[in-house]
Design a protein around this nucleic acid. Sequence first.
DNA 1: CTGTGACTCTAAGTCCGTA
DNA 2: ATACGGACTTAGAGTCACA
Lengths: 79, 79
Amino acid sequence: MNVEVSFGKVLRNLREEKNLSQEQLALLSELDRTYISLLERGKRRPTINTLIALSEALEIEPSEIIEKMVANIYNEQKN
Amino acid sequence: MNVEVSFGKVLRNLREEKNLSQEQLALLSELDRTYISLLERGKRRPTINTLIALSEALEIEPSEIIEKMVANIYNEQKN
DNA sequence: CTGTGACTCTAAGTCCGTA
DNA sequence: ATACGGACTTAGAGTCACA
């Protein structure tokens, strides 16, 4: 699994855990609704600034998102 | 301190701890030497893919780089 | 060994819409 | 609520010559 696909899955999981819609997360993170969709589908590679913005909106440490992402990359069986 | 400047300082610290030149790090991470320079000076906001490439070259967890970066942002006294 | 300006090219990120 | 597409602007990716 590549980096952006793994990131997208982590992002979607975290968002759904918080019961947020893509639109709500977009508002909170001051990103575009369609861009959240692109990220979750692994179509974009976010910059670290975007990572920070998303982690603040999701109330999670940015390093934790990266940890989950890396774990995902090395654990193909996980979705 | 903003995200990219903090990232640059962390990157430089880690590189120097490993006694690597920008050129050597560039070789290891398969990035350009001048791009490493740009990153260390906070002139670029790397994507998470670039983060991964650098962390592999520096033999450090990518999440740890992010942790150090965030700590730097909230500890202005640190350089 | 590193900083920097200038550069091209690609991708980040936005905004409109439709289904 | 989300996926997806087109068109768009901005900024990063990546390189080079030179100081």
